[in-house]
């Protein structure tokens, strides 16, 4: 799921860095608007560690094997912190394990980070007035599941579009497209697995320390002066 160096043309790499830069800037700006931007850093750092090692966990989906991505989980749990967390995690994966590459860091960050932010948006909808009244563990679990699946599903879709449109002329396009289709299909079960995993993590956090999820009650970039839940618990 991580594009290595030399697979996509240089223009795609450049565009990837541009979008990743933009998304990082916007995320940091939203984080900076919070009353205490550092309050969420420990949680973000721990989930970055989870994301960093998750790519080593391979899930066999015959005939291929895919690895955990967990970008949906990061989006659901971290909100705006998800994009910087994914960027940092991807950097260390590329440098240490050779997963992905430095020239494709921007493309990979966009491919994983933007779906994570959309998953965050989806999960945040549990705080909407109408839903909140009926909400509860079930709704929270369902939204977490959807968010976790959405992260993987959307990432696989972006990857497929990127690869389909950039198959070099020197390759056998039919064989390459068949291989791409097989890879993307293999991510359907993975999306379900990650959805369930995300739901379990969120329900666990809800039970042991709901404060850890509270930053999603309001918009991720809360207005200054709003009560800050995490400072008390942390």
């Amino acid at each position: 799921m991580h594009l290595p160096d030399g697979i996509v043309p240089a223009t795609v790499c450049a565009a990837g860095f541009a979008t990743a830069g933009l998304a990082t800037w916007y995320s940091l700006r939203r984080i900076g608007r919070q009353e205490d931007p550092q309050a969420q850093v420990p949680k973000a750092s721990l989930f970055t560690a989870v994301f960093f090692v998750a790519s080593l966990v391979h899930v066999p989906v015959p005939p291929v094997s895919v690895h955990l991505i967990l970008n949906g989980l990061l989006g659901v749990v971290l909100g705006w912190y998800a994009f910087p967390a994914i960027l940092v995690g991807l950097f260390f994966q590329a440098v240490m394990f050779g997963h992905g590459g430095l020239t494709t860091l921007g493309v990979n960050a966009t491919m994983l980070g933007v779906p994570a932010l959309l998953a965050a948006l989806l999960f945040r909808s549990r705080g909407l007035p109408g839903l909140e009244a009926r909400g509860g563990r079930k709704l929270t679990g369902l939204l977490a599941f959807l968010g976790g699946s959405l992260g993987v599903g959307l990432t696989a879709l972006i990857l497929a579009v990127l690869l389909f449109t950039t198959v070099p002329a020197s390759l056998d396009a039919t064989a390459e497209r068949a291989a791409i289709a097989a890879l993307v299909l293999a991510h359907v079960p993975l999306a379900l697995v990650e959805g369930v995993f995300t739901a379990l993590v969120v329900l666990f956090l809800l039970r042991v320390d709901p404060g850890l999820l509270e930053n999603h009650r309001g918009p991720p970039g809360r207005e200054p002066g709003e009560p800050r839940e995490l400072a008390k618990t942390g």
């Binding site: 850093v41 750092s45 721990l46 970055t48 560690a49 080593l56 260390f92 394990f97």
Partner: peptide, 23 residues
Amino acid sequence: QIGLMAAAGVWGFVGTALFFMRK
């Protein structure tokens, strides 16, 4: 080697978390 690198990376993130958690 992978296990050691993963452990080192994770420890870096945990350390960051602990640093920001110190009150």
